[in-house]
Amino acid sequence: MNKTVNQKAWFLVLPVFLLVAFSAVIPLMTVINYSVQDTFGNNVFSWVGLDWFEEIIHSQRMHESLGRQAMLTTIILLIEVPFGIFIALNMPKKGFWASFCLVVIALPLLIPWNVVGTIWQIFGRKDIGLLGHTLASMGIEYNYAQDVLSAWITIIVMDVWHWTSLIVLLCYAGLQSIPDAYYQAAKIDQASRWSVFRYIELPKMSGVLLIAILLRFMDSFMIYSEPFVLTGGGPGNSTTFLSIDLVNMALGQFDLGPASAYSLMYFLVVLLVSWVFFTVMTSIDKKGAV
C-alpha cells in the first residue's frame, strides 16, 4: 500500500507528548537534576558530575540489596509461573464452578498491597495470628521478626498468595481460546498428557504467559509495601530489597543525591531486564522449528 508522507502528522502526537512530559519526564528531570548535584541545605547546590553514580555502583549496600532483590524475584517467578499454569490447567472449563473459581482466584488481586502486608503481619503473629499461633503450638520455630528464614518464607508465601492469581487468570484466558478440535486431534494422534501440554497448551499460552512473566518480574522487582509493612526490611537488613533500601536512603537519611542516582540505575535495571527478556522470548517464538 502506498502511504502518503505527511510530516505535519507529528503535531497530532503533541498532546500525548505534553501529557507524558508533565506526568513522567518533568518529575524524572528532577531526579536527574538531584543525581548530578550535591547540597548542604539552604537550596545551595553544587555540581558533582557522575560522582553519585560512581559511589552507588561501588556501594556494597546496593550490591546486597540487588542480590536480595534478584533472589526474591527469581524464587517468586520460579514458584508462581509453574504453580499458576498448574492451577489454570486444572480449573473447570465452563459452568458454575468455572465462574466460582475465577471469582475466588481473582480475590487476592483486589486487595491493596499494604493491606496484604498487614494481613500477613497479623496472620503470622504468635500471640494473635492464626498461622503464628498454630505453628508455635506445633512446636515449630517461626518468627518473621527475628528469624531470617521465617521472614523470607513469609514474604514469598505472601507474594505467591497475592499474585499467582494474575498468572492463573492470564493462562486460563489463553487456554480457553484453544478450540476443542485441537484436543480431539491430539486424542486421535494418541498424544500423551505431557505432549498435549507441550505442543498444544504451552504454545497457545505463550503469548499471555510472556505478558504474565513480564508483569510479575516488574512488580516483584519493585516490591515495596508488602515487605515494608511485614518486616520493615528486617530482621537486620535481610529483607531490605531495592525499593526499601532506596526509600531508606532518600527519606530516612535524606541523601537525595545518591538516592537519585540509585533510583535512576534501579529504573535502568528494570528497563534493561524487561527488554532483554522480551527480546529473547519473542525471538524464541520466531525461531525455526524446535
Binding site: P179, A181, K187, I200
Partner: peptide, 18 residues
Amino acid sequence: TVKRNIAQVFQFPVVYDT
C-alpha cells in the same frame, strides 16, 4: 476414539505450531 483407530480432519486446520 483411540480404539477405533480413525483419523479426522477438522473444519479449521489443526497443526502443532511449534
